[in-house]
Each structure stands twice: as C-alpha cells, then as structure tokens.
Design a protein around this nucleic acid. Structure first.
Lengths: 274, 274
DNA sequence: TAGAAAAGTCCGATATACGGAATCTTGTCA
DNA sequence: TGACAAGATTCCGTATATCGGACTTTTCTA
C-alpha cells in the first residue's frame, strides 16, 4: 500500500488483489470486512467485486459461514498455465527415474521473475519439508538448493539484479547474508551443482542442478530433498552425476525456439508487490 | 456469445474471459486479434485488458512473438486454492500407499459443480492416459470411474440435475447414452465402487470408489488408472477392497465441520458457460 | 433478548473504460 | 529488396460502469 499510485485503482486491479488475498488465506476463507480493511476498499466495493468473481466462477461463498474463498474451478483454470512450457512433459520421466533411483523426493523448479516455482515433484517414501513445498509453491531465487542452482546460472547482470532485489527476502527466511550467498553461488558455478552446505531446514538436505537452455542459461532445475542423514559424502557424488545426466537429457529435448524465461520488463512490477 | 445479457460486460468479466481463453491456449500463446475476435472485443479493449493483466503479473507477453500467455505467477497463486480442503493432506498418504501397492497411478478427484477436478495423483511406472489428466484436470461428472463414483453417491435430486446438465457433454466425449449411464450408476451404488465396464479410453481401465462425508454424500473419490490388461478379475476385487479401506480412512479424518462441496446457487452460472 | 457488528442493497455523481481513428510494427510476397 | 497488408499499440472525447455514503437486513455476542 502507501505510495502505490495507480496500481490498485481500476476494478480489475482490485479484483486481482482480492484473488491474491483469498489465495493467501485459502484454508480459512475470508470475510468481506477483513478483505476490505486489508486492501483499503470500502465494504460495498469489496462485496460487489466478490459478487462479480462469484458470477465468473472464480470465487465461492462457503456454505456455512459467510466467508469467501477461491473455487476449485479457478485452480483448474490456472493449472493450464503449467503446460505452458513443454518442459513439464519432457522432465517427468526424468523425475520418475530419479525418484525411483534415489528413493527420495525430486523437484522440478522453473524460474519466474525473482522466484522459483515448483512445477512438478515426485515423492519418495521419506516425509520431507522443503522451501518450495508442493506443486505451485514459490520460493525466492537464492533459497534452497534447486533455487540457487538456477540463480547461479543466470547471466551476470540479471543475477546481480536478482540478488539486490531478493537479499532482504532471503535474509528474512534463511540465516544467510550476502557474503554467504555469493560464496555459495561461486561454488555452484564451479561444480555445476548446488550441494547442501548448511542445513537451511532442520534435519533436511538438498542437492540441485540447473537445466540449461541452448545458451547455457538456466531455465529450470532438478533437485532432491531428503533427510540430512541420507545425503552422505559417498551418496552425494553419485546423486549429483545422475541429476546432471538427466538435466542434460532434458536440455537437449527442449525446443530451441521455446523462449527462455526472461522478464526484463516485468521486474518493475514485481518490485511493487511482495 | 449471442443472448448473453450482462455476463461479459464489465471490464472484470471481460478480463476473466481473457484468462480463461489464455488457459485454453496455454501452450501456444494467443494473439491480440484472435483473442478479440473470439471474445467479441475490440482490439483496443483486448489490448488494454491484457496490459492490465500483465501489470498485475497474471499474464506475460512471450519474448519472441507478440503473443500473450498466462504467467507462472498466476499458476502459483491459484495453486493455493488446492489447499482449501484439508482433504489434500489427509489423502496423500493413502495415495502413496495405494500406488506403491498396485504399481499403478492413483487419483484423488473432488467434486466442483458439474465436474470432478483432479486434486492429486501419484504415478505408477506404467504410462497411462486418463480423462482427468494431470493435477488440475477437469472432467464432467459421469465420465471415468472416479468421476462416476462421485456422481453415484450424491443426493438423488442433485444427481438428476447433474445428469440433465451433463448428458450432452458426456455424449460428446464418450460413447455412452443416458440409459448406459443410469444402469452404471445403479451398479455403482449397489457395490460401492465404479468398476471398469467398458473401455472408455482404448486400452485403459479404471476403478474408483467414493470418499463420503458424515452424511454419506460423496465429496471426493479415489481411483486407479491402469492398462486394461492389468485389471484382471482377480486383481480388481482386492484393489476395490484396498481402495474402500483407504477411502474409509480418509472419510473418518475429514473435519466434520468442513463444508461439503455443494453448489446449489452457482449451478446457474455454470450452466451459462461451457 | 437487546445491542453491535457485519453483510448486503440502493442510487446519484463522477471517474473510468470504451472504441473509432490514427500510428507504429511485423510479416509477406512479387 | 521494396511495398503492401495485417496486426499491435496508442490517443482521446464520450458514454457508462464504478464508486462510496447512507440505508436495510442478517448474524454474532453477551
């Protein structure tokens, strides 16, 4: 809020802010008044917009309470965006193979502005916690091995801009400062993989490699999440090799005419939110 | 189009129609002019709305061509809607167990208006094709075993309304008429599971059971998708039993205060689209 | 059961979205 | 390669959809 000049005006902008707010409170549902207060809307406006969103099927009112929440229809519509990149179908066999081989959970992350988004994951038998969480989960570039693997393999100029923008968000969520991050990135660039160095989540460990496009720029990453105790010195070498092999296989199948995920312009707008 | 009175007016409505159109053409991307023609918009309007959607981060313009497509940000936002029901986390262990036991792909479908939406799936080693497809996929209630399992265990009045509305959509996608469907539903109600009777997809077979709430009304279904050759007479009995056991386990863990997925009012609006 | 808080509705003023026309850009064919 | 066509983008005066204050109805709470 505060000095946002023309961002939230226009009914469309407000409606989208409502959707984002509902997403953040997806489990409990949201009352009109709280929504209005949070987004600086009048009650009538909030109500009217919610009605419109319901008419379009993106929102529904919870049967018992009066609260509103996102509809599954909305989820279903947006899920189509996942197919956007051919990479989902290309990578899935690799994920299945890797998960079966390691007996661990494997992630496919792709870059989206200043974040990495989990496009797919195949679960191993061990329960794990990760920064990205489930499919659709988002994490700033720089947090987590899969995410760092991408960040480290972006063009320098872009990488610098991302570090600058993300550093506060990173320090907010993980006990790393900029020096740590830069050392880590250098190491990742050297060995072509992000190895678990410090446990960012208690008891958890990860290992990620970038998926590069024809220009050597990262568009995605393959990573595993596992118990720290399972990522021994001896295992991690083999795991890295296998991840790299699959990443290479995916790279070679990517449509060379598929645009890489670059967002020169929208960087501005992303800076506004969050 | 045609006699839509106030549905598509209001910039919000138009913007949402754009999002839906972009979702349908997620892989290729969409040109302004095609969008405008399909949605009966003027070119400037389409363009202006797209710009607004880009400003909000829901849409992005493809770097090489001028085409527009949904952003991953949009996908990430909507993914939160998946957590809406506690059922996702409750059911996941069951899915993992079942998939490991059968060596086949297991689906969790939930009801959404006249459709079933795939909330989760765990893949087995055999490549399969299904009506619902991947997570987020949608199929009319009445097509596919998991979907029929839900339909068969809804209150009679609601079921009739759904059959009436869905029949054209069903005949459009599967070689079934209303008599077939009603016979099938009776059978499913009798044995509490939707067994593969006719191959709706060449070479594929499925088997689904409903997940009931405290009132005995279906809120979801567990189903497996497999090669027809793998669903032998002897296997299907055991599979049905295991599915039922897990479905029962899920039912008992569902929060009894969680509202069931009923949509009495929004049925109207759903009838307008599609 | 009364009082308060939230939900939902109405309506006139006005800010905002609309689309025709003009301009710029991209693609195509001779 | 140049010139034409189709599409993308911008401009701007006008019509209209949106806005919020005030009001009614419903739900919560003590």
């Amino acid at each position: 809020m505060s000095e946002s000049e023309n961002a939230g005006s226009s009914s469309l902008g407000k409606a989208i802010h409502i959707l984002k707010d509902l997403a953040e409170n997806a489990t409990e549902g949201v009352r009109v008044i709280d929504l209005a207060r949070r987004l600086n809307l009048t009650q009538p406006s909030a109500h009217r917009l919610l009605k419109s969103l319901i008419a379009e099927g993106l929102v529904e009112q919870m049967p018992d309470s009066k609260s509103y929440r996102l509809s599954l229809e909305f989820f279903s519509i947006a899920s189509q965006a996942r197919r956007r990149e051919g990479i989902l179908d290309i990578a899935r066999p690799s994920l299945l193979r890797l998960s079966a081989t390691f007996n661990d959970t494997v992630f496919l992350l792709v870059r989206s502005n200043f974040d990495a988004i989990c496009l797919d994951r195949v679960e191993g038998p061990f329960p794990i916690r990760s920064f990205t969480g489930d499919i659709g989960g988002k994490v700033p570039l720089g947090i987590g091995q899969g995410s760092i693997a991408i960040l480290a393999h972006l063009p320098e100029e872009e990488r610098e801009a991302i570090i600058k923008f993300n550093m506060p968000r990173i320090m907010d969520r993980a006990a790393i400062d900029e020096v740590d991050l830069r050392i880590k990135i250098e190491e990742v660039r050297r060995i072509g993989a992000a190895q678990m160095n410090f446990e960012m989540i208690e008891g958890m460990a990860g290992l990620g490699v970038p998926v590069l496009d024809r220009n050597g720029i990262a568009v995605a990453s393959l990573s595993i999440g596992t118990l720290a105790s399972r990522l021994t010195e001896t295992r991690s070498g083999t795991i890295t090799d296998l991840l790299k092999t699959e990443a290479q296989a995916i790279s070679s199948k990517l449509n060379p005419f598929d645009p890489t995920l670059r967002y020169p312009a929208s960087a501005l707008r992303a800076a506004q939110k969050s």
